[in-house]
């Protein structure tokens, strides 16, 4: 029994290992320093593959994604900052290439909307509570009259 379990586990591990190497095969790029490697991975995970649109260029096997990764690689090696790379991409592909849209006049509502909605909700809640409490005192008055009469 134990041996069968061990066998199943080994088989599963082998399958996972296979998939793991397949995932890495998309982008085998190695930057010369760990610091550059970290920035490279960060950038390739936050840039959208414009062809597949729901994948980052880091994960996409599409040709264009490979070209854009090469672009990121070359720009980082040339000493460009992360923001330089983002600006380069946005200038050519538009804001859509960034998975995290930047704060600008056009996208400000994305960030402001939740706060505004909470304020509206709080205002409505306070008003309802005030109205209800006003109702209670109004209800009491006729009751007192009833007692008096």
């Amino acid at each position: 029994m134990m041996r069968r379990w061990a066998l199943a586990l080994t088989a599963m591990a082998a399958v996972f290992a296979l998939f793991a190497t397949a995932a890495y095969a998309v982008d085998p790029t190695q930057m010369p320093t760990p610091e550059l490697q970290k920035r490279y991975l960060g950038l390739t995970h936050e840039l959208r593959c414009m062809q597949c649109q729901n994948e980052a260029i880091a994960d996409s096997p599409v040709d264009l994604a490979a070209d854009l990764r090469r672009q990121v690689h070359d720009m980082l090696l040339a000493g460009k900052t992360d923001e330089d790379v983002r600006n380069f991409m946005v200038a050519r592909y538009g804001e859509f290439i960034l998975f995290r849209p930047r704060m600008s006049v056009r996208t400000a509502w994305l960030w402001l909307a939740p706060g505004v909605l909470i304020l509206v909700g709080a205002f409505v809640a306070v008003r309802i509570v005030q109205q209800r409490s006003a109702l209670v005192t109004q209800d009491n008055e006729p009751l007192e009259e009833d007692i008096r009469s």
Partner: peptide, 13 residues
């Protein structure tokens, strides 16, 4: 040949 010019034009397909 290597797709660099297409990136300059923002070509994605």
């Amino acid at each position: 040949k290597d797709g660099r010019e297409a990136i300059e034009w923002g070509v994605y397909g």
